[in-house]
Each structure stands twice: as C-alpha cells, then as structure tokens.
Design a protein around this nucleic acid. Sequence first.
DNA 1: CTGTTAGCGCCTTCAA
DNA 2: TTGAAGGCGCTAACAG
Lengths: 341, 341
Amino acid sequence: MTTTGPLRTPRSRVTIRDVALAAGVSVATVSKVVNGRDGIADATSERVLGVVADLGYESSLVATSMRRRRTGVVGVLVAEFEPFALQLLQGVSEALQGTDYDVLAYAGSVSEGDHVGWERRSLSRLGGTLIDGAVVVTPTVAVPTSVVPAVAIDPHTGPAGPATVDTDNLAGARLATEHLLSLGHRRIGHLRGRGDLVSAQLRERGYREALADAGIAFDERLVAEGGYRRAEAAVAAAALLSSDEPPTAVFAANDLSAIETVRIATERGLRVPDDLSVIGFDDIPDATACSPTLTTIRQPLHEMGAAAVRTLLDMLSGGEGGHVRMPAELIVRESTGAPRA
Amino acid sequence: MTTTGPLRTPRSRVTIRDVALAAGVSVATVSKVVNGRDGIADATSERVLGVVADLGYESSLVATSMRRRRTGVVGVLVAEFEPFALQLLQGVSEALQGTDYDVLAYAGSVSEGDHVGWERRSLSRLGGTLIDGAVVVTPTVAVPTSVVPAVAIDPHTGPAGPATVDTDNLAGARLATEHLLSLGHRRIGHLRGRGDLVSAQLRERGYREALADAGIAFDERLVAEGGYRRAEAAVAAAALLSSDEPPTAVFAANDLSAIETVRIATERGLRVPDDLSVIGFDDIPDATACSPTLTTIRQPLHEMGAAAVRTLLDMLSGGEGGHVRMPAELIVRESTGAPRA
DNA sequence: CTGTTAGCGCCTTCAA
DNA sequence: TTGAAGGCGCTAACAG
C-alpha cells in the first residue's frame, strides 16, 4: 500500500501470455498444449505444462467463451435467490453431476429492483457466450429461445414457448381443498396468489371446483388477495379472519401466505389447527421450520430441476424441448385438523 | 435444420454491431449511448435507443467485462450446491440487495469430481474478468487473494489469509456436549468430521473438553469417523451402536451425520430420543424436516453470508479484510432427551 | 459531436 | 512442429 501510482498493477491474473513468455514459446502453442490439441512435441508440451503448474495458470472462462462455441456451463437464471429457487438450483446441480457441465447461477434483478423482464436481460447478457444453455426459474414473460436453448420452470405464463417444467397446479389445489373438506370443513377460505399469474388462477380454479364437487356454493367473501407475498397475505388474512362468519379453514396459494396466515391467526388468539386449519402450497423448507409445521401441497422441486436438466441436455444435442408436468402431492403436517364441534 | 452449410447462423444474439448497422452509426457511438456517456446528440441518442429496444439488444456481460475493469458482479464460489452453501448464498444475496452488485454463484467441481483446489481454479477462471470480488465457501486450501479480493467462509484451514468468516466451532461443540451432559448422559459418543479440517478438529476438542470438565474420562471406543458425509457416517454410526456398551447419546460433527445416525438407530429398533439422543451441528434446513426434528448447534449462515459481504465490500473499496467469528447457538428440538432410567 | 484505432485473453486457421 | 495473424463483442483513448 506504499505505491499508489497511477498504474495500479496488483499482481494481475496469470494470462496465457505470461505462460508463453516463461516457457519461451508462442501463445498459440500454449493454447494447444492446454487444450490437448495434438501436433506438439512431447518435450515442448511437458515444459509448457510445467510452467502452467508453476504459475498456476487457468484459462479465463470469459476469454475462452468469447472465442469458443461451447463453454461447458449451464446457467440457472433466477430473479432472486429465495428458497423456492434455491431448491430448484439444488435439483439442477445434482442432475448435472456426472455430465461435463458446470453450473452457474445468476440472480438478475438483485441490483435492478423488481424489473419485469429480468429473464430476457439475463439471458441476453449471459447467453451465447458464458453459458451453453439455461434453466430459467419462474420467468414472468415468455423466455426467448433464440439466444441459447432455455427451459422455463414454473413459468408465470403457463406452458408457452418450446420447453417448460411445471407442477399440476389445478390438481394440487383440488387436493388441498379436498383435504380440508375431508376433515369436515365447510367454510373454507382462499388466499389468492398474484392474479396475473397462471399458477394462481389455476389454484383458485382447483379450489372452486373442489367446492363445487362437494356441493358447496362459492362465497366471494371467503376469498382475499394474498399476492403470493408476505405483507399482502398478512393484510388479506386479517381481513378474512375478522369477517362476521370467518372460515374454519384457509387454503393459501403458497406457503409464504400460509405462514403469514398462521401468524396472524395466532396473534388474534386463535389456535392452529384447533380454531383454524391452514394449508399452503409449495413445501418450501420453512414449512417444516415453523410452528405448527405446515400442511401443504408439495411441488417436487428437486425433481423439477432434474427434469429441466434432462430437457435442456436434450435440446443442447438438437432436441426440440417439450413440456413436463409434475404431480403435486399432499403433505399432511400439523396445521390442519377437524373443525371444532 | 435444412441448411447445414459451413456457416451455421442460428439467429445469433444481437450484438452491438447489429445495432450500429441498423441505426447507421458506428459501434463506438452505440456503446456511448448505451453506457450513458455524454457528448452525443439527442437525436442520435434517441434513434440508437430506439433500435436497441427494437432489436432487444443487451450488452454481453462477458465482452463488457473483458474490456472494463469493474463488472458489478460478486461471485459466490462453492464446490457444490448443497444446503449449507445455499443458505450462505441466500445470506450473501440478501446482504447485497440495495447495493449495485449482482450475484453470480458458481459450482466449480460439479463436472470435475472432488478435485481439491476447486477454489483456486474457479477463482482464476472467473476472477479478474467476470467478477469484481468473491465469497468462497468452505475452501479446502488457502484462498489466493492475488487475482481478486476474496473472503473465505468456514475455511477448512481456519482463519488464514486476509479475510475469513467462521463460527466458533470449539464453543459450539462444548455447547452440544454440555447439553447432553445436562440431560444426564454419561456415555456420550462422537462422530468425527473429516480429520484434515480445522472445524472437525475443533469440534472434537470441544467435545473432549466438555467431557473433561464434567469429570468424564475420554473413551476412544465412543468415537468414530463420520467424515461429514452421509455414507461414511452411516457406517460409523452402525459401528458405534453395535459395540458392547453403546453410547446413550451421540454428538455428530454435522447435521448430515446426525441424520444418518438417527436413521441407523431407527433401523435397529432404537427410538430417538428415548433410547438414543442425537445432536448435530450446522442447522441445515433438513434438520427440521426430518423426524424426529434434530437438536443441533446452529451456525448463523445468513448472518455469515452478510458478514462476508460486508468484509468484501470493504476490501473492494481498499480495505484490508479481517477475520470474523460468529457465535454458535444451541437449538433444542426433538432428538435429544434424558437417558432411560 | 462522431468515427477510427487499439486492444482485453483466448482460440483457430493458415503459413512457415 | 511451431508461430503469426485475425477476430469474438465491447470500451477507452484519440482524431477528425
């Protein structure tokens, strides 16, 4: 820290040129040696490799990918590193073990705010150069596939575009509602998800259909806007619970909303599940960490990640893509029970 | 797929040149407009911006970072996307909200196997170009800081190098052992972590010290090698439980090992915690998802991620780095209880 | 105000 | 068997 000259050179990274210089060969030769191209004398090769080891040279992923077609890296593009995306990431990563692909995850809207269209931006910025293909998590708009093969997981627009993986939201919502019905509930509330998302619409439809099948009339007063988000869900839950005839059970469109509902109910002195049953959707890790643990509809996130990888690998070798729909599963835990009396 | 000519041009990504061509200006001008440099006529600027929007142009992160010094991206380098790393990643990501840094996570040994030294490789490949700084999760060797500022979380070598964040492993292990002692256990087993890691050594030392303080002689037969890994831990747990005088409680060096221990015990008809108490270390999400839920020593992973970010940001603006040690916390759940009779 | 020139680090022809 | 030249997409100097 003594010399703060105009040209700060903090022992920059070792480049191919440094290796070439030290080995007394040309840059091209080093490149060939490092990449195992043949047509190099054994002696030269050894010498170069020695220098490479000495200097700790590693080719720059960035420079390499600019010049080469293939990088051997699959990108997982997310808006934000939240539990849902992280589970998916884990599934993707596991499925990629044993292949010759590395995984790179990129959160595109960390510094930009909730900018809709982050997926397009990320895909353009990374695609064609850094990554050979992408798994895009919960894209808000159609994923352009022109830049690089991409498969969308749980796309907000439903199965549009060449390749998607999602969960059977309709069946899942029916499962949730039927579970509450089978426990004896008749006044069942619903906390909607974000109205502009296909998944939320399907979850509400499943709720309505299950009610109809059970011969229960739909009651608009039992439904509120949870928006898939904590804050919004809290307000909605409070409204629902303070109505004249509050529900005895609530189906929240996702676990985040469900957890908020439990919190609000508890604050008001209601016991879950004795006074109020709550069921969520997703089965994020928090669903088992909260108290009481949350009954929910599980989306098989790991398997979805793996399915996305299969589709992507297929596309990378010329395949067409396709749509995969995973089953939803009811996970009964502590937050649901029979209504009182 | 009809024309497989020598020059495959599958609607490649839109480059700055396409924009320049379409707008009838030079490449440099487009660059200036896009980057908000001044000295451009309003008319030109507007026209270029129009074309940019039309074509959906986004600058390539790779190309940009080759030319520029700063990329505005912080890298989180992990060996593998497993729960521990993912929690940390979430902490890092949250702490970076509101700054103008994006997050990029890279798993360096997915395609390469357990190659020791993945951190050096990843750092060299990404550093200096793609990322401005790095948070390296559980590096196995000293992290070279020459390429780019880097802070190591839970380094296997202990607080070496310019910047690290870790948990007080010694105190944590004492907490764990003292918890079992306070429940009345006297024959307490230990599943070691990987012997070459400082964290594992400290955890064993904490265990021994706590026993000594309680006046209990150390018994080598109550200790086995769990290696921090599922498979190895299963074997070790089986050995421990089938000894002549099996322990009534086990302190496993991490949650993964603890969960395996519970599984093995259950298989053999032991009830946890009635017949055997088990305590882990880490508090990964699985610790609440298993049954019975796991008593453990919590490492504050989110906070550690945040601490790493603080240190890194400081280094990025010329700071020196430093060592942060976080407290460990006992989380009592269902897997521990008093010994029978 | 705008275009030209010169690379960033690397890989791939093509000559020598 | 090796080296020189060109260029991937972009930006930072410098000319015009």
